[in-house]
């Protein structure tokens, strides 16, 4: 892991609330707190994994960082410059440097546009290349992600899931960005295809010194991809540490429960599950105190009233829990 002094991306107490409107005049009567006080750094060349159950705010976090959602509070800085307050036109030059790969690339491709044209659009918007130069760049890109020249003239429906994800990756790396946010990028793929795409992402990272923020609910894949892992629950950070710290020595009861719930490909293994009660509460009905106390096996009185503080337990290993 490279840890120079200034992180590539840093957030400080980042918040994203969605208002709940009600009543006669559609006043705001409450907030869905999708992301709450999230502060972390991503350093150049590393992969930060963000994990948690559905509804924990991990995707909203990724989208807010890229400016696809306007943040409600807190700050985001990229290479030392704050970017969360910038207007759309000023943000454009940063957007070249930050890209996203989505779970379902098919949803972001126009079914009536050839893949070659779809990829060329990136260069039309962000560069001054002429038609033949653009085509050259697109063909190079296709090769880079393991597709063939003949795919240039095909339509999105002619591709398999794995190939579509390769197109999504091609589009993300087209402008040589430094940060790519992968939102469940390999979750919808079959295992054998998943392994191929993971390898592609790793190869590209090495070749272009890319930095990834890897959002996923699959802890096996995250372990494989990531240098550091951030665990989120109900919009807040519960634990952050190096991959080794999180998987070898998880501290927060939620992290422990998550890890023990992964089905292991070992038949007859003894299950030592950390039991968790019920489902994740709705983010509009936010619990007092520690957000996890409603399901926590260790919950004490103070967990119900006092929000646990975020503290460093060992070097680079942070946790928010009273009982650790």
């Amino acid at each position: 892991m490279l840890t120079d002094s200034t992180p590539l991306l840093e957030t400080n107490k980042l918040k994203k609330y969605y208002p709940i409107k009600g009543g006669l005049f559609k006043k705001t009567i409450g907030n869905v707190k999708a992301v709450q006080n999230v502060s972390f750094q991503i350093y150049e060349g590393e992969t930060l994994g963000v994990v948690g159950e559905s509804g924990c705010g991990k995707s909203t976090l990724g989208r807010t960082i890229l400016g696809l959602e306007k943040s409600t509070g807190g700050s985001i800085s990229f290479r030392g410059k704050t970017i969360h307050h910038l207007s759309e036109s000023k943000l454009k030059k940063f957007k070249k440097d930050m890209q996203m790969v989505f779970q379902d690339p098919f949803a972001s491709l126009n079914p009536r546009q050839r893949i070659g044209d779809a990829l060329e659009e990136v260069f039309v918007i962000h560069t001054n290349l002429n038609k033949s130069e653009r085509k050259k760049r697109v063909l190079l890109l296709l090769k880079e992600v393991g597709l063939k020249e003949e795919h240039y003239r095909r339509y999105p429906h002619e591709f398999s899931g794995g190939q579509r994800q390769r197109i999504g990756i091609a589009r993300a790396i087209a402008l040589n960005p430094s940060l790519i946010v992968c939102d469940e990028a390999v979750s919808a793929l079959d295992v054998s295809v998943q392994a191929q795409v993971i390898k592609l992402l790793k190869d590209l990272q090495e070749k272009y010194k890319l930095t990834y923020m890897f959002i996923s609910h699959d802890l096996g894949v995250v372990k494989h991809m990531c240098d550091r892992v951030l665990v989120m629950y109900l919009g807040t950070m519960v634990e952050l540490g190096s991959s080794e710290q999180i998987y070898r020595n998880p501290l927060h009861p939620y992290t422990k429960a998550l890890l023990s719930a992964i089905p292991r490909p070992v038949p007859g293994r003894k299950k030592n599950r950390v039991k968790m009660q019920g489902d994740i509460p709705s983010a509009s009905n936010y619990p007092n105190g520690c957000p996890f106390h409603t399901r926590c096996p260790l919950a004490q009185d103070r967990c119900r009233t006092i929000v646990p503080e975020w503290r460093e337990v060992e070097e680079g290993h942070f946790v928010a829990c009273h009982e650790v």
Binding site: S160, V191, A195, K199, I262
Partner: peptide, 24 residues
Amino acid sequence: KGLLGAVPNVDDEEHHLNIIPGSM
């Protein structure tokens, strides 16, 4: 064998993903 090798393993430190070339 290929399928089993392509599953990311959480417990194994040195596990390398095995890749089945091509597609279905």
